[in-house]
Write a protein that binds this DNA or RNA. Structure first.
Length: 891
RNA sequence: GGGCUCUUAGCUCAGUUGGUUAGAGCGCCACGUUUACACCGUGGAUGUCGGGGGUUCGAAUCCCUCAGGGCCCACCA
């Protein structure tokens, strides 16, 4: 391994990409190339800071190609701005709390959490790595999992996530992310817990966080409430059951009955009303009357509400507490009683809340259904309805979308529970307007992504449910006093002081109480819920920036310059971060939001694990090289989906070819006889106006072709810089790459004969061009770039100054010498190709037609074409009008 | 049902405020082993710019409309 101060300064015999990742990752770490220089930032002011709010990947998940894609986009911005003289604040976090970790720990170690169990010292879990050898699959079955205490469970979570995070970090280093690894954080870490609890307590103090006992979407597998942002529709088989209710008022058309259609007959015991549209003629006479439920014999009212749809089913619906979210709306707006029968385990409650209203037969029926799952209760109910004749016809099978927790595999139920909420604008128009306004003051890249944010804000149906009935997460930092009967006073929560954070109310006693008063009358009880993982992730700018802990740093980096993320988490991470910043700081958390597209397979389908079309990033980096993979990612603009065919990854080969070409071209240029060393301004500290080593370029570079090449390059510098400033890295790469290939294929060929002789103009121009090109390409191919840079510099290209037009100002504007010479060169090559001759075949004489400017490169054309006699006649287009090859075989 | 987005060569994509004959890379074909590069070089062929209509001297580009793909949201009796 080379010395960090003087890395491999010798040019290898045969430059190669292999090994560059490991070599440079280590040198960058040793040198602190990517460190945030706080002192310099303080001295230069916050305008000189470029801060990035990075997405903490789910530590228990696996990284896929989509991560590589969007994290590379973010790194391009970091590297460009670093070279532009900014102090880069580029932390990296791991999202390690939450359900994915719990589930992975259950599978990996074969355990499940049972909070009633005592802690066991030095606990040895039954499994290491799960039943599957890769440790990732659904290995241990739930029934086989050994129950362990909450503390043991959390210890296992922490143990596993630390291991996962090491692997993630290694991958990111391999990819060449220029993260300052001293700034890493974990969403379950000490600092994150403090920030999450402090923010929550401030929300509480301002009235933005509150409790409500209300119907909540509930996952029966994980036994936790879930939020709107975590919902996902899944198509499920179901059936319409037509059920007859007896009507004392005569029913429809005097039939004595009202028929409804339902997909959830098992909820019949929870029926509280029927509802039809107020304008529906069929039911006008029945509004205000009552009907009797089949099987249970409960009298329920027939009501009118505008949400009822005339054309759906029979036009009249059964309202149950609670079959779906529309039921909740009706229940609330029609002021109906609560007779919920589904428990938190997804089974019918042992005691029905309305049992006293049931008929005797109804009570017997319910006794049979109690304890059954929704699935078996439904089957039995249908049998009973059929036996009693209340089922009209046979159930009609349908497929319909049903709400699921995005990580769950059973339909959500609606259960009335006490939960914590944070205002998000759903019920507060003023806040919603502020959030929309906040979105408008962020520059989205591309701009249309803002619409997704606005749609989400505008479509919110309820406040943010932040409490989760889980174990591995940041505890909600409150306790409740118990009255003389031992009943908790939920409306009088006890809160800790901010200086005492973090707290765990399930193990720390409430302030002013002692631990032996826990769960005692007149004592206290700790809140056992934890926060939604987004309640922590929404504070990544605050956590990474030292909010409330290190105000000097926080003011330096907040609001951040850039949030970079995928489009799939606009509704969760982006929205919630804007919300928390608005509530806490009254301002937006960042100036720019760069939104990456996602990866689609050749069939235009989104890559996902469930479809089995993912490729592991580590294997990809290994196979193609990191620069090649980065090139592929950099070729796609923000917001644009990129296709990737794992079976045929030819797209990676293009970047690989570019990186290899850079190594070889640089080596070739540097092998030319050196006339006068060209020292370039290479330190960010050097003021741009002082370039002593370069002032003589214009006296050395005198050949018109050389000057024109640099003039073209100057234009490329301007275009690439503008593109990077606009977060259009793909455009920057495109113009740079196009010039680079012209430089290699045409210019380098044209001047190499001249350069071999030590011609000062061409050699100096070549070196200058390589020097600029390597810097232009450094964000995209950082490994090859720094390798090349190290051959002539002692510092890193990544802390070198981004090229500026002033460096090449002496060249003036492009005059067209290079394009004209290229066209002439192509003509000469074509003549040789047409004659099936080698390119090194000599030419006795040739005539070029073309504009006069070609004359300025005539000597170079003669040299590269091995042309003895070359004449030029005037024409608009460059063509070869006459050519006589030397047929003498080359010795 | 609403919103956003896309449709250009066999494939992946550029195409700026409307302006000559619509471009690149890959792939394909031919040629070439040249003292940077065989992980190579040189050259070549390849299009009804999704369909239709309109505005204009002029449309891949602007407008309308239709079709198709993708994503997000809503609906869930």
């Amino acid at each position: 391994m080379p010395d960090a101060q003087h890395p491999g300064s010798s040019i290898p015999e045969k430059p190669a990409l292999e090994g560059l990742e490991a070599k440079w990752a280590e040198i960058w770490e040793q040198r602190g190339t990517h460190r945030f220089d706080r002192a310099a930032a303080l001295a230069a002011g916050e305008d000189a800071v470029f801060s990035i709010d990075t997405p903490p990947p789910t530590a228990s998940g696996s990284l896929h190609i989509g991560h590589v894609f969007s994290y590379t986009h973010m790194d391009l911005a970091a590297r460009f701005n670093r070279m532009s003289g900014k102090q880069i604040f580029y932390p990296m976090g791991w999202d390690d709390n939450g359900l994915p970790t719990e589930r992975r720990v259950q599978n990996y170690f074969g355990v499940r959490c049972d909070p009633t169990l005592p802690y066991i010292e030095d606990y040895k879990p039954p499994l290491e790595g799960g039943a599957n050898s890769d440790g990732s699959g659904a290995s241990s079955k739930a029934a086989d999992q050994v129950p362990v205490s909450r503390r043991n469970f959390i210890e296992l979570c922490e143990r596993l996530t630390v291991e996962d995070e090491k692997q993630f970090e290694a991958l990111w280093r391999d990819l060449g992310l220029s993260v300052d690894w001293s700034l890493s954080y974990r969403t379950i870490g000490h600092e994150a817990q403090i920030a999450a609890q402090r923010a929550f307590l401030r929300n509480l103090a301002r009235g933005e966080a509150y409790q409500a006992d209300a119907p909540t979407l509930w996952d029966v597998t994980f036994r936790t409430a879930v939020a709107q942002a975590e919902l996902e529709d899944k198509d499920q088989p179901g059936a319409y059951h037509r059920v007859s209710f007896a009507s004392a008022a005569g029913g429809v058309d005097g039939s004595g009955a009202v028929e409804i259609e339902t997909t959830r007959p098992e909820l019949l015991a929870a029926c509280v009303a029927l509802v039809a549209h107020p304008d529906d003629e069929r039911y006008q006479a029945l509004f205000g009357t009552t009907v009797t439920t089949p099987l249970f014999g409960v009298e329920v009212p027939v009501l009118a509400h505008h949400l009822a749809q005339k054309d759906k089913g029979s036009g009249i619906a059964m309202i149950c507490t609670f079959g779906d979210v529309t039921d909740v709306v009706w229940w609330r707006e029609l002021d109906l009683p609560t007779r919920a029968i589904i428990g938190k385990d997804g089974r019918l409650l042992a005691e029905a809340p309305a049992a006293e209203l049931f008929s005797d037969a109804g009570r017997a029926i319910y006794a049979e259904l109690a304890g059954k799952t929704v699935f078996s209760a439904k089957a039995r109910t249908v049998e009973l309805l059929r036996e009693t004749g209340a089922l009209i016809g046979e159930p009609k099978p349908i497929t319909h979308p049903v709400k699921f927790f995005e990580k769950g595999d059973k339909p959500l139920e609606i259960v009335a529970t006490r939960q914590w909420y944070i205002s998000n604008g759903a019920r507060d128009e003023a806040l919603r307007d502020r959030l929309i306004e906040a979105g408008r003051s962020i520059d989205f890249h591309p701009d249309f992504m803002r619409v997704r944010y606005e749609n989400w804000v505008g479509g919110l149906t309820g406040d943010w449910l932040v409490s989760r009935q889980r174990f591995f997460g940041v505890p909600i930092p409150v306790w409740y006093p118990l009255d003389a009967y031992g009943e908790p006073l939920h409306h009088e929560p006890i809160v800790p002081g901010e200086t005492n954070l973090p707290v765990d109310p399930s193990s720390d006693p409430a302030p002013g109480y002692t631990e032996d008063q826990r769960n005692q009358p007149n004592g206290f009880v700790g809140e056992h819920d934890i926060m939604d993982t987004w309640a922590t992730s929404s504070l990544t700018p605050q956590i990474a920036g030292g909010w409330g802990v290190d105000d000097e740093l926080f003011h330096l980096v907040f609001p951040y310059s850039l949030r970079s993320q995928g489009q799939d988490i606009i509704r969760t991470w982006l929205f919630s971060t804007v919300l928390r910043a608005e509530l806490e700081h009254g301002r937006v958390p960042w100036h720019n939001a760069g939104i990456s597209g996602f990866i689609v397979d050749p069939d235009r389908k989104k890559m996902s694990k469930s479809k089995g079309n993912v490729v592991t990033p580590a294997a990809m980096l290994e196979e193609h090289g990191s620069d090649a993979v980065r090139y592929w990612a950099a070729s796609s603009r923000l917001g644009t989906d990129a296709s990737f065919d794992p079976q045929n990854p030819k797209q990676m080969k293009i970047g690989r070819r570019l990186a290899i070409k850079v190594l070889n071209a640089a080596k070739f240029v540097l092998s030319m006889p050196s006339v006068e060393p060209v020292e370039t301004r290479s330190s960010v500290e050097t003021p741009p106006s002082v370039e002593p080593a370069e002032t003589h370029l214009d006296t050395v570079i005198t050949n018109p072709l050389d000057i024109d090449m640099l003039a073209e390059l100057s234009r490329v510098v301007a275009q690439a810089t503008t593109a990077y400033r606009d977060y259009d890295h793909a455009r920057a790469l495109e113009v740079t790459e196009q010039f680079f290939w012209t430089f290699c294929d045409d210019y380098l060929e044209l001047v190499k004969e001249r350069a071999y002789t030590g011609d000062a103009s061409s050699v100096t121009a070549l070196r200058k061009a390589i020097d600029v090109l390597v810097r232009l390409l450094a964000p995209v191919i950082p490994f090859a770039s720094d390798e090349v840079w190290s051959w002539t510099h002692s510092d890193s290209v990544h802390t070198a100054a981004w090229p500026v037009v002033d460096e090449l100002a002496f060249a003036g504007g492009p005059r067209g010498v290079l394009p004209a010479a290229s066209a002439a060169l192509i003509g000469i090559r074509r003549a040789k190709t047409d004659a099936k001759a080698s390119q090194k075949t000599g030419v006795l004489s040739a005539t070029l037609a073309g504009p006069a400017i070609v004359a300025e490169a005539l000597e170079d054309l003669k040299a590269v074409g091995r042309i003895a006699e070359l004449s030029l006649i005037a024409a608009d287009e460059v063509t070869v009008t006459d050519i006589v090859l030397d047929e003498t075989p080359v010795a």
